[in-house]
Design a protein around this nucleic acid. Structure first.
Lengths: 97, 97
DNA sequence: ACAAGAAGTCAGATTTTTTTGACTACCCAG
DNA sequence: CTGGGTAGTCAAAAAAATCTGACTTCTTGT
């Protein structure tokens, strides 16, 4: 309940934990995300969880939601600058393991 | 239940998620860990959770458990090389947020 | 010998996270 | 005006993570 917030990295870490967040992030690096597409791409996931994860990633300022009001009229999620700044961290992480 | 293991960074991320792991890691960077000391250092935690976390960090090869068979005869947890390799990642993470 | 500390384990309870299924609202095509 | 797609929400259920308290074993100090 009460957050003790010891180190700053901890919050980032915390926000990338959750069953689907890393996967969502990975796909967001490749291209803008759309809700139903994501639902099909990430097999095993479900609306509610993706919805929650996207909301949290957005709140953390890693993703940005935009309504595209053209042709097909839809919603897109894109990495923010802060989100992009995480890419090297992931790459470094992949270098290990 | 079934793990899909998409990207390698995911497993690292997964293993640093959990309520106490980041904190344990942070303390391990500073000095070798001892169970009961940790229990006192991390307020709000409990034996069972720490035990589980330490076991998992050990299984991931980030921590190493050693029995010191001298003077007070006790057990120590130290970062492995793989564990140390994560330090820069944490530092980078702190650089953001 | 006895008490206390270290390092746990175990079962059960509680809490948090994730999943399910039903339902909404808007737009577009035929 | 009906069906299908997009982008969700909501409440309830199920699953996973965490916490509690009791108990264990080994060692050390007095």
């Amino acid at each position: 309940m009460e957050e003790t917030e010891t180190c700053p990295a901890q919050r980032l870490l915390k926000m990338l934990s959750g069953k689907w967040k890393a996967e969502i992030f990975r796909l967001a690096v490749e291209s803008p995300l759309r809700f139903n597409t994501l639902l099909r791409q990430i097999q095993g996931s479900n609306k509610q969880s993706l919805s929650t994860a996207l909301k949290e990633l957005e709140e953390e300022g890693l993703l940005e939601k935009t309504t595209i009001k053209l042709k097909p009229l839809h919603i897109e999620y894109n990495l923010t600058e802060k989100g992009k700044a995480l890419i090297p961290v992931f790459q470094h992480l992949e270098g290990l393991s």
